Amino acid sequence: MYIKNILINNFRNYSKLDLSFEKPINLFFGNNAEGKTNLLEAIYYLATGKSHRTQNVKELIKWDRDLFYLKSEIIKKSTEVKLELGYNLNNNKKVKINGVEKNEFSKMGLNVVMFSPEDLMLIKGSPENRRRFLNLEISQTDNAYAYHLYHYNKTLRQRNKFLKEKAINYKNYNNLKDQLYIWDKQLAEHGVKILIKRKDIIHKLGILSKLNSRKISEGQEVLELSYLSTIDLDESDGNGNNKDLEFYYLDLLQKKEQIDKDVYKKITTIGPHRDDLLFKINNKEAKKFGSQGQIRTIVLSLKIAELELIKSEIGEYPVLLLDDVLSELDVKRRRHLLEISKNKVQTFITGTKKEDFMNEILNSAQIFKVKDGEIYT
C-alpha cells in the first residue's frame, strides 16, 4: 500500500497543497510550527477520520475558512483507489471512495501507523490515551468495531446525563433499575463486542511486541502486555457465546450495588470506557518502574507490532508516519526503526535536521522543505 498523491485544501495552516510521492521514503524538513505535523495529521485523518491531536474537528479547518477538503489516490493491492473527505463548520462530514459517497463507518482503504513524541506518553500517561490508541488501531481495519464503539459512546453519554440530572429523583430502586435498563441493554450489546475485539487485538499485539522488544534490547528486556477490564468476561457463567456474555454484562450493570455506586458518582463506573492496558518490563510495571530507555523500547516495539498486525489483517503493510520522533530515539533504536521501514513500508518522516538520518536513507528518499504552510521539493 502506498500513497501516490495528496491534495489538501484549508487544513490547519495549509490553504492549498498538491503533492505527489515517487519514492518509498519521504522526508519533510523545517523549523517547528511551519506545518510538518499538519501534513502527517492530514494523512492520518484521511485514513482514520480522526485526528491524533484533537477531538475537536473544527480546529482542523484553516482560520477564517468554513471547511477543509482532502483528496488522495492510493495503491492498494495493485489497485488504484481515490479517497475524498470533507468537513465543514456545520459538523457535516462527507466521505467518498472512488466517487461513491460512504457512511462514516466505511473503511477508507488507507491504513497508517503513526509514531510521534506524544506516543512516548502512552505508557506513563492516562488510561484515556491507551484506550484511544486501541480504538484508533482497531477501527482502521474493523468497520463493526467502529460501529459498536460509536453506539456504545452515544448510549454512555445518555446514561451519564440521566445519572447526573435525574437519577437522584428516583426513590424506588426497581423504578430506577427499569429506567436504566433502556441504556444498560445497549451498553451490554455493544460493550461485549468491543471487549472481545480488544482482548483479541491485545493478545496479538502482545506476542509481536514481545518479540520486537527482545530484538531491540538484544535479549535484555521481556515485554508483557495485558488488558485490564472492569468487566471480567472470563468470569461469566455463560457458555462463551456473545449472547451469554451480554446477559452477564447486563446483569452486572443492573445489580443494586452497581446502580447505587453509579448514582452516587453520577457516572457509569464499569465498561470498556474505564479499561486500561498494562505494560510490564522484566515483570515490573513499566508505568511505575520503567526507565526512559525502556519506555522508548516499549513504544517502538508496539509501533512495529502495529505494522505487522495490520499486515496480517489486510494482507499488506500500512503507511508509516514518523512525526519528529527520530530525535527522541538513540542511534540503535533509530537505526532499527528505519531499517525495518526502508524496504517494505512507505514512510513519511518529519524532522528539523538531516543529521537525524543515515546517508543510505537520505540517498534513497524524496526530500521536501516545509516553510510557512508551503512545501517545496
Rank of each mutant, 00 (worst) to 15 (best):
D356W: 10
Y45R: 04
K164M: 07
E224S: 12
K93F: 09
R12M: 03
L27C: 03
K243T: 13
L122Q: 09
A305M: 02
A305H: 00
D184N: 12
S209P: 13
K76I: 09
I340H: 13
G109P: 05
K36I: 14
T268R: 02
N143P: 12
K215A: 10
V100A: 12
I207T: 06
I25M: 14
S301Q: 00
N111G: 05
F21Y: 07
M121K: 08
D237V: 12
E316M: 11
E221D: 11
G191V: 01
N135M: 01
M358E: 15
N10S: 04
D142S: 13
K94W: 08
E285R: 00
T269M: 07
T350W: 13
L40E: 01
I340S: 05
V100Q: 12
E80T: 12
L156C: 11
S209H: 05
R335K: 14
Y150A: 12
I314K: 12
H203K: 15
N103L: 06
G35E: 03
V299S: 06
R131P: 00
N242H: 06
R274G: 07
L17T: 13
Y2D: 03
I196F: 03
G351L: 10
E360V: 14
W183G: 08
S15I: 15
P272I: 14
I207W: 02
L83C: 01
N175A: 12
E137G: 09
S116G: 13
S312E: 15
I304L: 04
G206R: 00
T48M: 06
E339L: 11
D244H: 10
R12W: 06
K77F: 09
I75K: 11
G315T: 07
A144F: 09
L46Q: 00
L27N: 02
E224I: 04
Y44G: 00
I216K: 00
K353T: 15
I123N: 02
I310K: 05
V113K: 03
K284W: 00
Q254D: 00
N212G: 03
R12N: 05
Y376D: 12
F11A: 10
E59L: 11
S226G: 07
E308Y: 13
L338E: 07
L110Q: 01
K332G: 01
E218F: 12
L149I: 09
S312G: 14
R333H: 02
E360I: 12
E257K: 15
D262L: 10
K161D: 08
N13C: 09
V319T: 01
S301N: 02
K161L: 11
E80I: 10
D178V: 07
E257V: 15
H336S: 10
E73A: 09
T297N: 07
A365Y: 05
D232I: 11
N91D: 15
F68S: 03
A33D: 15
L85A: 07
